[in-house]
Write a protein that binds this DNA or RNA. Structure first.
Lengths: 173, 173
DNA sequence: CCTGAACCGGACTGAAGAGTCCGCTTACGT
DNA sequence: ACGTAAGCGGACTCTTCAGTCCGGTTCAGG
């Protein structure tokens, strides 16, 4: 069962590519039929491989989330917690906004497996920065995530860097 | 035609009340059937009076928008543009968040008649505050609106004041 | 090759929601 | 009090989309 037939694997990849394209373009609102059409396969083929639409979305953003985790781990190794936090925030933003549709998918999958781990890492980064006096103490780590995320989500195309600057400045101690 | 029959007027009011309740509870996603059920009238009655769901939503938030316009006009009369802006932001936030569902409706109706006028007023308030050196100059008035709005929208229940503080601090010059 | 298991596509189901229509009811002017 | 126009409600249509199912097809091992 772990081994897929050659044609199945081919289709699976086409579906994943198509899903990435579709979700990047339309966010989590892209329909399964859109994905199937883009992939050139039947709607049923998509649903068989990914019993739920969220499964498909999660498969698409898995790589994104993994990259963010890597960034977070790197940030935790810095010896300047303040700088590490702000750099990390900008890195993650850059990654997220390289595909805003996918960013919306990440938001949509708030509490999937990898996301929880990522949340834990981010919380540590924020706590360290707060402890070092670089980030104001009257916010929780989760607030930082939500604030940054909301700035990115609400910014008009191409303007997100300025929005991020405002929020990050507001977060400084 | 301008005069409604007594029962029609009664129903119209019940529909508006019900719609306010429903949209306040569920944001713009509340269905027309929800509203009709709450009002104790048929689905058709709602649709006849408000040919489009957006018409209904707009009727519900009209009062809200008017109140915000009043606040904006008051802010424009202050002789301290900086303080006027920050006070105005907090007032509007307080009003918006007294019914978060309605706030989401306001966002949903981005470009309805009254909203444009409100945007104009807000833009003036922000410009004045920037000119007075109270608000950073590297943002546009519309950015301020979006940033504040996004902070309010993304905050978990009851936490929005802290989120607003962060964004407003980030907006200071 | 040839066969059966894996796989495919698309027809189908079911839910949900917006907006329409028409036969019945009710208000209200005369 | 009565006739009629305004109004009512809910059944109906139309659309969209997620998820299921099965008859036909294709792969891959023997």
């Amino acid at each position: 069962m772990t081994e897929l037939r050659a044609d199945a694997r081919r289709n699976l990849e086409r579906v994943l590519d198509a899903a990435t394209e579709a979700f990047a373009a339309s966010g989590p609102d892209a329909s399964i039929d859109d994905v199937a059409r883009l992939a050139g396969v039947g709607h049923g083929t998509v649903c068989r491989r990914f019993p739920t639409k969220d499964d498909l979305i999660y498969a698409v953003i898995e790589r994104h989330v993994a990259q963010m985790q890597a960034m977070a781990r790197e940030a935790l190794e810095s010896d300047d917690p303040g700088e590490a936090f702000f750099d990390f925030a900008r890195q993650v933003a850059e990654l997220s906004m390289s595909a805003p549709g996918l960013h919306r998918c990440v938001v949509h999958c708030g509490d999937k497996p990898g996301a929880a781990e990522l949340d834990r890492l981010v919380a540590t980064i924020v706590s360290r920065a707060q402890h070092a006096g670089a980030v104001r103490a009257d916010v929780e780590p989760v607030d930082v995530q939500l604030l940054v995320r909301s700035a990115l989500t609400s910014a008009p195309a191409g303007q997100w860097r300025r929005y991020l600057d405002v929020v990050l400045d507001g977060l400084r101690a």
